[in-house]
Simulated scan of single mutants.
Amino acid sequence: MGLLDRFRRVAPGRDRVSRGRSAETGYLVEWMRTRTGVEGFVEPKTTVTDVTVVLVAADGEWTRRIVGERGARRLARDLGIPVYDVGRTGYPQRMRDYDARRRIERKRAMEQELGEG
């Protein structure tokens, strides 16, 4: 706990975890708003993380956030986008293609920096 944490007011019934999750949800809403063709893929809880959701845009760009079980259901309802269970559907090919393109771009940028230096 930080020095000033005890002076910060927390609304009744809301702890730091729920505040963090609402921030995550806000980020996901904004991310979705600025992209097209977004679909959600819910990942199960693991020993390390709670339930997560991966949003994937039409071009394959993606983002992942921890949302919890209730947060995943709420996102599916509130965002109005298709949401899939990644255990049943797997990840979309466009997501893997996007990652492959990014690796190639990083490699080219690194080679270009080394060539100029």
Rank of each mutant, 00 (worst) to 15 (best):
R88L: 13
R74I: 08
R106N: 12
I104Q: 14
V54S: 07
Y98I: 03
Y91T: 06
G2P: 00
V17H: 13
G60R: 11
V48A: 09
V56D: 05
R94W: 00
G87E: 13
E105T: 14
P92R: 13
Q112W: 11
G60F: 05
S18N: 01
W31E: 07
V29A: 11
K45D: 06
F41T: 03
Y27I: 07
R65E: 09
V48R: 13
R106M: 07
Q93L: 13
M110G: 06
R106W: 07
G37N: 08
M95G: 00
V56F: 09
Y27Q: 10
R74A: 08
Y27M: 13
A57L: 11
A57H: 10
T34C: 09
L79S: 08
Y91D: 04
T47E: 11
R96S: 07
R94H: 03
Q93G: 05
T63I: 03
R35P: 01
R6S: 14
G80Q: 13
T89P: 02
A72M: 03
I81E: 02
F41V: 02
A57G: 10
R102L: 14
E116W: 10
F7E: 00
D15Q: 04
Y91A: 12
V67D: 01
Y84E: 04
E39M: 12
R74T: 15
V17T: 13
R77P: 00
V86L: 02
R108N: 13
D78W: 06
T25Q: 07
